[in-house]
Write a protein that binds this DNA or RNA. Structure first.
Lengths: 206, 206, 206, 206
DNA sequence: AATGAATGAGGGTTCATTCAT
DNA sequence: AATGAATGAACCCTCATTCAT
């Protein structure tokens, strides 16, 4: 006979994760102390440790949540019957990130990728979730190929990997250098993706 | 006396930076303690602090050194009279990184990008160096356009930004997911860059 | 209702004490946490605190129970009409301890004696129980004197104190150094107690 | 080129051990916190940890020092050409303990014996030192046998074990029940040791 | 120039205990 | 009677940094 409802437990977890998110986004994983999280959550040390066995678990959970938000974003886009052309869709996805309910996954992602290199457990978890992202983007490539908007000779899996890399660097540059860099990348991607179908071989022709 | 002193100073700085590099690559910036660095360098605390005012300075210096290595790599490639086609050059650059004298900048770069988000001073320094990289890649694009191998309608600066993003994500995936991911990206990039000039107009056909 | 309640209370107390015993014997008083006891007892924190006001009370209760077991052992031996000679009885008593229903008081006793030094309340309780032990051993000495097996000139109370000391050290050495030490002590005690009556005056002769 | 002399290091170790001794004797191993030791030593946390890797090391060192004091006491007694009779010597040894320069090993010994049961490393160290004690006491028995004051038929090793046990219990009772118990034990030991040689079979004679 | 002993704030975490349910 | 979520002080220990030598 649990004294507290399952929803209560879930709400507490949420409360703690939200607090951790704010702290991590503000100061980074390593400059955030557990007391910072306690204060932000308005909870005692013991309360937090009841729900997460340690700081590492908090980081892992945050990594999962933030990656999941990207996946959700992709799923929302893929759910549409008609897709915008890729040169519209890619910038849109990147621009969607900061709008995700006040919790911008892009602000945490580079930290997660970095942390991944020193924490094998986190690396495994992230690799799994990136696999999910890859699945979605591969499907996206296929649909573009079916729509005749992407060269059908391309391997959709390989292409999806490239797209992931592009998005990762995109996020890093937005974080590091701000909006201007984002707009430049957007312009570059638009031109690259739009040209080939119109005048791709101009180099040879001209 | 000043001559010897200067050389000595430089050698000590190098000794400390090398030690820091090893530590940072092994355990990350934040899980590396200054005592770790002292031990790896074979120096006392006081000696290290004579050359660097603190841990942050060490991180900044390492960030600069590692970014400089990428620039040097690019310069070496750009020095050639004839460039290989981009679908050859890009994978070659990424593959060059781990071979840089045992000190793979790719192992540190994601940490630097992540750290950048919490340390404005580092962010500024990195932004400056990424500007240098951008300069080189813009020049590269221009040469490719001149060689008729890249659509002359593209803005070389925007395109260079995209290439930087791509390389950043590439590095992250190599670090996170290993060689297999690298090879997949290589294949994807090759196909993407090679196709348009051969069969790019499939978009028109479909 | 009071009847059932009383039995229930007693059963719960026992359940908790048994759990505490296991934990204390495994990890010692101080490395055993209350949560350890909760888990071992299969009860909640609140349930345990209903029966014992705190950890200290648990320790005191355990101290009492374990000392009581020694007393029970002595009583069982003293109940016999004819006693074995002391050089048989003493080792037998020590060897009885580990066999006490899986709960070896010897494993807890040194901890109790040690704890006694910092906890006056426990000290008083233990002193009281050791008084009971002393009573029995004094009686034992008297019976041996009556049986002509112990020098009637000895003060039975003083002698009993010596026997207690001997048994305490015996227990410590068994715990610390294992069976070999026990057997050596047994041999030593046998020789010491047996000789005087047979060939005691050899010291005078030699 | 050490900046600080070896004596300095040794003095610091001493300073810390002395502080630990005071704390441990006052509150026991487990109720003494490291901050307690810092305060008593008048040193910072870091300073203490430079000399001892942790609390456990402090306990081990204290255990060694306190056992060593007993050994020194024995050595001092054994150095004499003529030994007092055993019924004088044993109480004298026990009474010597509290007089050991203000640091009474008897106040710590029961804690050490208790701790031994949960810390195998400490157990090994203590077993080794108790072996040294055993060596001395065995030698003592031999000398008593040679002096015709102890039955030559007794095994000196076994007898020494019994003496150790007796002393251990003696210390415990002194600590637990105070001087009265000590005097009672003294009387008991005196009578037991004195009788056999004078009127051992008094039961028969009387 | 270099040492390394010393500092002490702060780190992550545990745990005895309470109390609303 | 029993639960178990919550508290928050305290714990042991680390580490960036300083400074007398």
């Amino acid at each position: 006979m649990p004294k507290v409802s399952e929803e209560h437990r879930e709400a507490r977890r949420r409360q703690i994760l939200d607090a951790a998110w704010v702290c991590f986004a503000r100061n980074g994983f390593h400059k955030t102390s557990m007391p910072d999280v306690f204060a932000e959550a308005g909870l005692s040390a013991g309360a937090v440790y009841r729900y997460f066995p340690g700081k590492e678990a908090l980081i892992t959970a945050i990594a999962e949540v933030s990656t999941q938000q990207l996946i959700d974003l992709l799923d929302a886009r893929l759910a549409a019957d008609v897709l915008p052309p890729p040169e519209e869709l890619l910038p849109a996805i990147v621009e969607d990130l900061p709008a995700t309910g006040g919790t911008d996954p892009a602000a945490l992602a580079p930290q997660v990728w970095s942390e991944t290199m020193r924490d094998p457990r986190l690396a495994a978890a992230v690799a799994g979730m990136l696999g999910d992202v890859h699945l979605r983007l591969t499907e996206l490539c296929r649909r573009y190929q079916a729509a005749g908007v992407l060269d059908p000779g391309l391997d959709p899996g390989d292409t999806a990997r490239v797209v992931i890399a592009l998005i990762q660097g995109w996020i890093i540059q937005w974080n590091t250098m701000g909006l201007a860099a984002h707009q430049q990348i957007t312009a570059g991607v638009r031109a690259l993706l739009a040209r080939p179908r119109n005048a791709g071989q101009s180099g040879q022709d001209g």
